[in-house]
Design a protein around this nucleic acid. Structure first.
Lengths: 143, 143
DNA sequence: GACCAAGTTGACGTTAACGTCAACGTAATA
DNA sequence: TATTACGTTGACGTTAACGTCAACTTGGTC
């Protein structure tokens, strides 16, 4: 009946809310904070594929623990003012800093996954011993 | 004069605050929330190396965007009640879920690093062109 | 033209994660 | 013993990131 959500030329606010499983309030909030600047059709907001991409960047940033401010910085990196070399250099610096931080985060995650693996191993073992004990006393149990 | 902070048997609250660059208020707050349970010497808190490790886990969790609740879950995985097989199974499930989430996050980070690399490439190029333009007009400029 | 769904703008409420401050206790040191 | 440094417990304030709600408009459609 309708293009689910692929390859549209424009989206309503509830299109995007449904696709990304967030509320329309959230999307308007991002606009208030200057992260999105959709067009208008009369009073209603109309979102372009570029807006949709920005929203995706914001939500990915959230999963990575970025603040909305930080996400805005990253979004700005995609459409900077190419005549302002100061701003360009600032953005480059920010990118390099952010990349370092992400690499640190990569390491943290790998470490935490290892830790979780070890913890799981111990727990599974403890659980197995527990079941052995259950079996050994099963003759006395009805449950 | 003092062991900077390595291989101590116990720590004061400000030892830990200094080491991890957080405030003592933060550490007490984590205790209020049940993430830490230091001993006392009279009125003062005394932290063991295990407490220090927990604090490290909490802060690593924060860098990864975990809430304090989630960090507490993870901490609990290291010292569960081994007689309660229901709890063991619950913890194992939580671990597996958390690992999936972390793997997703790994992917997000790698993607974002790639994106940043591309963005930086474009910016560096734009900057280079800008400088060329500067040079080309340098004969007219004093600045 | 009455109605409904979807959208809009305020305004206010809420939660997590601390910060700030006041008022006090305590231990070592001068 | 007076000072100073460090620690403690409330109590209240703050910020980010939304949720909730009320009152309104607008575009179809029965």
């Amino acid at each position: 009946m309708s293009n689910t959500e692929a390859k549209k030329r424009s989206y309503t606010i509830s299109d995007l809310a449904a696709e990304f499983d967030i509320t329309t309030r959230t999307i308007r909030f991002y606009e208030e904070k200057g992260l999105l600047t959709p067009n208008r059709n009369g009073q209603s907001r109309v979102y372009t594929p570029a807006d949709r991409t920005k929203l995706r960047l914001i939500l990915r940033g959230k999963r990575l623990g970025l603040s909305l401010e930080e996400s805005r910085d990253i979004i700005d990196m995609y459409a900077p003012d190419r005549d302002n070399s100061d701003q360009l250099q600032t953005l480059i610096d920010k990118i390099r800093e952010k990349r370092l931080q992400l690499q640190h985060q990569l390491f943290d995650i790998e470490t935490m996954i290892q830790d979780l693996d070890e913890a799981e191993g111990r727990l599974v073992e403890a659980l197995a011993r527990h079941e052995d004990a259950d079996n050994a006393t099963d003759k006395n149990k009805t449950h």
